[in-house]
């Protein structure tokens, strides 16, 4: 791994205000706010795939939008190659976005329905002056090849394509400006299983060929595990655990990661369990408990979890977890060593 991170996220927080009701004002209570992100820190290395996984409301999409500056964090800083992206102004900001691209979840909403594929790509290529005017048609063909769309796709409108093909168009649009980083927010979750696999394969191949840095945000643990070098598990706006994909999934060091892993349906009908992986439901994001956010559902909970929020601390090199049970999930031998 490269020593200098291409993106570093440092203590980022983001709140969304809810309406400040008269009752709360009279009672002198602070306005309700959804803490979508709560002191999130991590780094992304050049050329890697970082998976961000979590259930709905965990803040993963908010984080993705902050990374491309569709949203500005309320606290903390996101740095791209050492520069705080919130300080970038107009032209600089557009130059930043040329290098950090995003692909969207909704294959139906992310393309302008009144523009043909060639118009979409042409716009991206000409606004950023990626190619001299005369070379643009050739480049469009090249981009279509890259995402494995037929050449006659250029003259068609989005509604003439299937969901998987639309996501390919979205990928081609992002690639048109030759970015260094691509943030993919739930890229395949709206697609059928067999089509998902096609798009995942495409992404894997493109990353190798173009040396992309990829931030893959999804709720599907199996997909994230499959595509990522490193994975961050989020819950209620916080990172619960972050580490190399293989070791995180082989021996999760946070009870929530373990629950998520146990709950994800696996393809082995001989390995059935009737035990529920995590009881209860997510607490309201308007009213996050003071201690560990997972405390209310955790089967290993003890008193300290309810009052003190565990910090994200190192478990192994590159592997951190936010749990008071430092030895949770540690290999038995390591445990023995510790004792």
């Amino acid at each position: 791994m490269n020593a200098v991170p291409i993106i570093s996220v440092d203590g980022v927080s983001k709140q969304f205000g809810a309406s400040y009701s008269l009752m709360r004002r009279l009672a002198g209570e602070p306005p309700l706010a959804v803490h979508a992100l709560n002191n999130v820190s991590f780094e992304v290395h050049r050329g890697e795939t970082l998976g961000i996984v979590g259930e709905s409301g965990c803040g993963k999409s908010t984080l993705a939008r902050c990374l491309v500056r569709l949203l500005d964090p309320d606290g903390g800083a996101i740095r791209f190659e050492g520069r705080d992206i919130s300080t970038l102004r107009s032209a600089e900001r557009r130059a930043f976005n040329k290098r950090v691209q995003m692909i969207f979840q909704d294959p139906y909403g992310s393309l302008n329905p009144r523009m043909t594929v060639s118009q979409v790509l042409n716009e991206a290529l000409s606004v950023h002056r990626m190619r001299p005017k005369g070379d643009i048609p050739a480049r469009i063909t090249e981009l279509l090849d890259l995402v494995r769309l037929p050449h006659d796709a250029a003259s068609r409108y989005p509604h003439e394509f299937s969901g998987g093909q639309r996501q390919r168009i979205g990928i081609a649009r992002a690639l048109a400006v030759e970015p260094d980083v691509i943030v993919a927010d739930e890229l395949v979750s709206a697609l059928d299983v067999s089509v998902q696999a096609q798009v995942i394969n495409l992404l894997l191949r493109l990353q190798e060929e173009l040396h992309l840095t990829l931030i893959f945000v999804a709720h599907d643990l199996r997909l994230v595990r499959h595509i990522s070098h490193r994975v961050a598990v989020m819950y209620l706006g916080q990172i619960m655990e972050i580490g190399p994909s293989e070791s995180l999934f082989a021996s999760p060091r946070h009870p929530y990661s373990k629950a998520l892993l146990d709950a994800a349906p696996e393809l082995d009908p001989t390995q059935r369990s009737r035990v529920v992986a995590a009881r209860g439901e997510l607490p309201s994001p308007l009213d996050v408990p003071p201690g560990c956010p997972f405390a209310s559902r955790c089967s290993h909970v003890f008193d300290r979890c309810r009052v003190e929020r565990p910090a994200l601390t190192k478990r192994a090199s590159e592997h951190s977890a936010a749990c008071h049970l430092v030895d949770f999930g540690a290999m038995p031998s390591a445990l023995a060593d510790a004792v």
Binding site: T49, S162, G164, Q165, D192, V193, S194, V195, Q196, A197, Q198, I200, N201, L204, R205, R222, L223, R225, H226, I227, S228, H229, S245, E246, F249, E266, L267
Partner: peptide, 24 residues
């Protein structure tokens, strides 16, 4: 067979999935 191959499994990180080409 194609459906089963399309779903990522544990222990096969970052390999190509055996997807089904085309659309229904």
């Amino acid at each position: 067979r194609g459906l089963l191959g399309s779903v990522p499994r544990a222990g096969a990180v970052r390999t190509m999935l055996s997807s089904i080409e085309g659309t229904p």
